[in-house]
Computed example of a mutant assay.
Amino acid sequence: MKILFVAPWIPSRYRPRSLEFLEILAAEHEVALLALTHDEAEIEEAAALPVTDQTLVPNSRVGTMTRSLRSLVTGESLQTGYANPPELVTALRAKIAEWRPDVVHLNVFRTAHLVEACGDTPVLIDLDEFRSEYYEQLAADGPNPAWRAIGRVEQHRMRAREDELVRARVPIILSAPGDTRPGTYVVRSICDFPLQPHTATAPTVLFVGRLSYEANVEGLMWFAREVWPGIKQAVPDARLRIVGQDPPKSVKTLAEQDGVDLFANVPSIEPHYGASTVAIAPIFRGTGIQMKLIQALSAGVPTVTSEMVAARAGVRDGEQVRTAEDPQGWVAAIGALLRDRAERERLAVNGREWAVANHGSAAVRGQLDVAYAAVTGHRSVGSDATAYIDEYGQ
């Protein structure tokens, strides 16, 4: 089968879901890549991808900002404006006419405006999530007036396009089992994170996350302010280990508190899971699945998270994770796990089994196969995926 994979960026380890899907498909089929690039470094990254050929369309940063600002006037989504140089549609139509793919795989909402340009060629789009919900949350309780203003503008424009795709029965891939409307298929993100040997020498609470993402920073700051003092009182020798990229000044100041260690821009996060007793995901705004939760479960680290994060992932309190909402609940849940080794081990085993069954490579290949079979009428990937479907179904 010939698949034209269209992305608003170069699939890479920084865009792992895009890269993983591209690699799965390229292992079994001819895959051509059509993508936007910002600079020479991204062009070099693209050269290493396992594709039959590639068409790269320049997307200058000045151009992205100009089109995004213009979107405020034209009424289109800011996300669309960001990734919509006119050369992209031209290149897409030319590639379809020349190469005649069996299916076009569109990657994330920033390519949603390309559906109609695919004409009669079967198309599916990996939205990952119905992202408009995130902007609705921002509009209601964003961290500052600027974010709330963006949320008010973007939520309606993005929702309108999402609803349009659903009404048109465009096959949509989602990463979470929550909002599965007609024509949607759940294909989770791969997490083959290895089980980590336990090396913690002190009761250690771990937070892992991209620290340039405002929802991560807000959740972490809330935890440090509202929960951490209570944990220190209950378990005086407890330590908080923060691991993430590009921490802002507010996070850097946390390292000045008693028992808090900050590890910024580390080459590998794996050892930090092994050096921790309990992981946390104190996120109260967001959509889709928090991969920090899936990584922790896959690594075999018992995890405490918010009810929202657990519900979106499909894990349950007391079975694969512990959940909490208010500071007292967080202190109680974490304190109990820090003191109870048997309970930590039980949750670690359950969480690891769940992560492998739902986010392991074989599982995700099977999920992707279901989505492609619905679009093309035949299997998209290999026998391992077929075995998964036979055993687990969709």
Rank of each mutant, 00 (worst) to 15 (best):
G178T: 15
T64G: 13
V235I: 09
S361T: 15
T303F: 05
D258I: 07
D258V: 10
T90V: 14
G81F: 00
E40Q: 15
G329Y: 02
A333M: 06
M291V: 03
E116A: 09
T199S: 10
V57W: 06
G274H: 05
S132W: 01
R15D: 12
W147S: 13
T37M: 13
P86Q: 10
A140M: 08
E30L: 06
I24S: 02
S68L: 15
I24G: 01
L92Q: 02
A91E: 03
G63E: 10
P145R: 07
R241Y: 09
T55M: 12
Y388R: 13
G81S: 11
A299M: 04
A299N: 02
L114E: 04
A202E: 03
R239D: 00
P182Q: 12
G259A: 04
I10G: 00
K2V: 12
A355V: 07
P248K: 09
F223K: 02
H272F: 05
P8R: 02
R341G: 11
L206V: 05
V227H: 00
V62I: 14
P247S: 11
M221P: 05
V6P: 00
E129H: 15
V104P: 01
H272P: 04
E30Y: 06
A215M: 09
A336T: 08
E391F: 13
S77Q: 06
K2R: 12
A362N: 14
V217T: 03
A238Y: 01
A299W: 00
A176N: 07
C118A: 09
M1P: 05
G318F: 05
E256F: 13
E20Y: 08
R61M: 11
E40H: 14
S68W: 15
P171F: 08
L4W: 03
F21H: 08
Q394M: 15
P101G: 09
V260C: 04
Q233D: 14
L72Y: 11
A35F: 04
L33P: 01
P16I: 06
Y135A: 08
Q257C: 12
V321R: 00
Q137V: 09
A255T: 06
P267W: 08
A94P: 08
I280L: 05
P197E: 12
Q290C: 06
L106Q: 01
A7R: 00
T111S: 03
P229Y: 06
L240G: 04
A26L: 05
D340W: 04
S298Q: 02
P229K: 08
E164G: 04
E40T: 14
G230S: 09
M158T: 07
I190Q: 03
I43L: 15
R379Y: 11
V186L: 14
G360A: 12
I269L: 07
A333W: 00
V356D: 01
R100Q: 10
W9G: 04
E325G: 15
F130K: 04
Y134G: 11
E116N: 10
A371K: 02
N216S: 07
N144R: 08
A275G: 07
V349Y: 15
L114N: 02
P122Q: 03
P267T: 06
P101N: 10
E133K: 14
W228A: 03
V153W: 13
Y135I: 11
T287M: 11
G329W: 03
I389E: 07
A26V: 06
